[in-house]
Design a protein around this nucleic acid. Structure first.
Lengths: 215, 215
DNA sequence: GTCGGCATTTTTGTCGACAAATATTGTTTT
DNA sequence: AAAACAATATTTGTCGACAAAAATGCCGAC
């Protein structure tokens, strides 16, 4: 028998991230319970998890609302990401295994092929895969949990809402290659520096889109 | 009317942090419900929050257990803290207000008095106050929430379990002063560097205590 | 026409109850 | 005596129910 509230959480996360439930929307527990055909307790539990992911805000006796997206929120998120992904790179330079190094090397070779063949196809996923594999190589469970679970969904929400367009794929691939090189050479300091620049660039890119799209 | 599950959470946190509930202890929902005289639903909600704080681990159909403390866990926590507190310092150097600057300056003057008068009294709290005021000056709500709420309780748990003894108070005060000076001069880069060293020193200090006390 | 107060309705916070799953205990077997 | 099994007991996951609080709509007053 499955655990309802755990199956329900990703479904609610998707609904929030993909904009089905827009920012500011009041999330009524009875309504969600009817919609997902579960008891109100399970909805409550799922909403509590969403609060932990920063996707909804819960006020006592007032219920949960989908968080609103602001340039400040985006900036804050990226400051945290810059710090954590930078540290993850530094640690990965010391802790990465040969298998993980191979997987990352192969991934970038694959990206190279896509760039060469002009297929932008799947680029989005590839970017995420690179970051995921890399911070997982830090072998720091708390970092992986923060970057991969807790902060990741909010990042996805911003990207979705901004009809995310990547900047130059060649530039991104170049930066990824530089970062991976530093990691493979065991130069944690350089790897951290390069990753922080990479994340900061990404932040500026998204902030521009924010200005453009949301008047 | 108060919100039971929110009042219950800090009580459970305290019980876990101060060792009343030792690592590995199974936390039975009915038992906690009787003990704290609330319904099982409220206990469940509180346990879910504790899981978010990293104080308990919940396995489906098996309930919650107090996390066990390990040198690896301590190292992971401090890597995250080093990254986040460093970033907070960098941001604080840009965003700190005159009022916050005053409060921090006064706090360090107070610490100086304590050091001069040899009263080690209240040192523990003072250390925490400094860090709290400082990362709050970053004006990054996500950083404040992570450092002040989510990671803080686990740090307290490690400190408590290690009958935390500070290293040299004069050394700590010196480092704090250097950090604050850098922040007040708007030198975010230096402030970050110094804070990261400070946290790393603290990590090594606690790790030694870990080796000593837990064989 | 707009603002303010009152009654109604909905929603949240909380609890107890039930079924399924797990843990525990005692018993039997090798 | 140790291991495997079975019956019991406890616990978790889930739901519906109830009271208090908040949101809503309605009516009258200005």
């Amino acid at each position: 028998m499955a655990v309802l509230s755990e199956d329900l959480t990703p479904r609610l996360v998707e609904a929030v991230v993909n904009g089905e439930l827009t920012p500011g929307t009041k999330l009524s527990e009875p309504e969600l319970a009817r919609r997902f055909e579960v008891g109100r307790g399970s909805v409550r539990e799922a909403l509590l998890r969403l609060e932990g992911l920063g996707l909804v805000e819960r006020l006592p006796r007032q219920g949960a609302r989908v968080v609103s997206l602001t340039p400040e929120g985006l900036t804050e998120l990226f400051a945290v990401r810059e710090a954590l992904e930078g540290m993850a790179c530094r640690l990965a330079a010391m802790a990465i295994t040969p298998a993980e190094a191979d997987a990352l090397t192969r991934l970038l070779a694959q990206h190279q092929q896509f760039v060469d063949s002009q297929e932008e196809y799947q680029r989005q996923q590839g970017e995420e895969d690179f970051h995921y594999l890399l911070f997982k190589a830090s072998h720091n469970r708390m970092l992986v949990s923060l970057l991969g679970d807790e902060l990741y969904q909010l990042l996805r929400m911003y990207r979705h809402r901004l009809s995310y367009r990547h900047s130059d794929p060649r530039q991104a691939l170049l930066e990824h290659r530089q970062i991976l090189d530093a990691v493979l050479q065991g130069d944690g300091e350089l790897a951290e520096l390069l990753m922080r620049r990479h994340v900061a660039r990404s932040r500026r890119h998204l902030l521009v889109q924010f200005q453009e799209e949301m008047q």
